[in-house]
Each structure stands twice: as structure tokens, then as C-alpha cells.
Simulated scan of single mutants.
Amino acid sequence: MGSPSGPPFDPDDPGRDRRERDTEPIPRYRPDDGPAYGSGAGPASGPSFSDDAGYGDVPGFGGQGRTWVRDPEAGYQPPVISEEELSGLRSDSQGMAPRRVLPLEDEPSSLVARYLFPTERYRGEWKRHWIHLATPIVVGVAATFILGYLSGFLAGQDVGALTTIAVLLWFAVMGWVAWKVADWWYDRFILTNKRVMVVNGIVTRKVAMMPLARVTDMKYEQTPTGRALNYGTFVLESAGQEQALREIKNLPNPNELYLRVVEEMYEPQAVEARLGKEADEAKADDGA
């Protein structure tokens, strides 16, 4: 076995004691060590620290971060963490960590399930924002007031045929409004781990899709009204070509939806891990 490296031992070396003190191992902090270091109680009664002391020495933190601070009078003190920094780590009243996106149904609706193949993982479906119905609703309300007043006026003029026409016209307008509402109800934007889809139509069904792997650019736009009412228009591009699924108007919660699509495109493993953890927590809650 070889000899230890370093200069030969010299008992008269004036710096030997200082070097030995500097190279002595520093014991780690133990909660039951007593008063803080530097309080005059001696090294054995206060907390001691290793070179890597940090959040890992404080219960609840993960081994990296700010270290304890040495006060000349009070000795070593724990790092000060503001309420704002802690707020992001706290759970809500239901024990769930804060989340940026809203929870979705675990299973697709019967309307959507028929368009998914077995190995595809469902991520969510969205109806368009209610602003999509603004024009039919305005037309229906206006027709009710105008044709109602006209019917009453014509009834007083003893022109029964015109009154009947006004009433039939009101029924036609209300039928058109009901059709638009039904069309809005069956119109869905769908996200899976493979693609985005739009399914719409009542009598004639239309299914448009774009693989996530083909999406080269994605953005959403919000007008001032859209920002106030929380809806927007999504624009998808694929290799600079015009696509059937390029512009999708009046989608709700566009920022949340944007985060979901981008996460599915760039961090699919993280999505799987998060959903798996949530499923395990749900099973644990059901078992409890």
C-alpha cells in the first residue's frame, strides 16, 4: 500500500494547527442538539452543519436551495421564506396541490368515443363558447318582440291571414334558433395523445383531424371581448399547407387549452405520469 500523498509531517510547522482545524469534518445538524450555535453553550449543544447544508437539512425541503445564515450575534439561523413563496406549495382545502388546468372527465362522451381508436388516449373534449350562439339568440329575441308586436297589431286590424303568417314566421325563426343550438351542442373540439379533432354537424357529420406530430405552429388569438369573456380562436399550421383543421373559432378557456395541447406535444411522458398519479390518488380516496 502506498504512502499518503502530501508534504511530510513537520511538528514545528506554524500553520499545521490551522490546516487541521480547516479539514476537520463538520457534523451534520441534529434537531435535538439544543440551543443555536454561537449562543455560548458550546459546540456540543448547538446545531452543526455540513458543507452541503441547505433545504435538505430542514424538514419538508428537498436538498437544494438556500443555506442557513450565520448571524454574528444569534449564530446560525434558518433561511427566511416568505408567504408568497410558500403559497405555491400549499394544498387547498381538499388536499390537492394548485393546478393550472381544470379537471376533465376520465372517459369520452358517447358522441366522441366512436371516433377514437382503441390505442388512442383520450385527453378531453370541449364545446365552443356560448358566444358562438350570440347571433341566433339575438335574432330569436328580436323576432319574438317584433313579430309579437306585429301579430297583436294585425289582430286588431281584423286581418287574420297576415296574423297567421306572422305567427308562422316566428315559429320558423325559433326553429332556426333551435337548430343552431343543437348544432352548437354536437360541435366538439377533441384532444388525444395522437391528434386534435373537430366533430360537428347534426344530419351531415363532419370529422376533421390533424396529427400532433404534423403541427408545426400553433397559436390562439383573443379579441378584447374574448379576453373579457374567456374565449379565443386557435390557429394550427402544418408544414405551411392549408388544412381543413386550421382555424377553430370560439373555443373556451383558450389559455388552459393551449397549455394542454402544448404539453401533449412536448411533454407526453409528464402527462402520463400526472394522470397516473391522479388515478392512484383517486383509487386511494375510494378505498379510504
Rank of each mutant, 00 (worst) to 15 (best):
E242V: 11
P118W: 00
R100T: 10
P118Y: 00
L169F: 15
G240M: 05
K180V: 12
Q243D: 10
K283V: 05
Y37E: 07
G54R: 04
N230G: 05
Q157Y: 04
R19E: 04
A244Q: 12
V80R: 08
P103T: 09
T223G: 11
S93C: 10
M218L: 13
D33A: 09
A284Y: 07
L154G: 02
L169T: 15
L257Y: 01
K219L: 06
S5Q: 15
M209N: 11
A213W: 08
P8M: 10
K127E: 07
P211C: 13
V177E: 13
A182G: 15
P47F: 09
S87P: 05
V69T: 02
Y266T: 14
F49Y: 07
F145T: 11
T135Q: 11
G46Q: 02
L229V: 05
V139D: 09
D33N: 06
L259Y: 07
G124A: 01
A288H: 15
G95C: 12
S93A: 14
S87W: 08
R99V: 12
V112Y: 02
Q269C: 01
Q157K: 15
D32I: 03
G232L: 01
R66W: 01
G62P: 05
R21Q: 10
R99G: 12
D22R: 06
Y37M: 09
P268S: 12
Y231N: 02
V139P: 06
D17G: 09
I190S: 03
G75C: 06
V199S: 11
A279I: 01
E267K: 13
T67R: 05
M209Y: 11
K194I: 04
S39A: 10
Y258F: 04
N193W: 09
E120W: 00
E84K: 08
A244W: 07
A155Y: 11
S3M: 15
S3I: 11
L236H: 04
I26G: 09
P78Q: 06
W130I: 14
I146E: 05
E247R: 14
R188E: 03
E247I: 12
G42S: 03
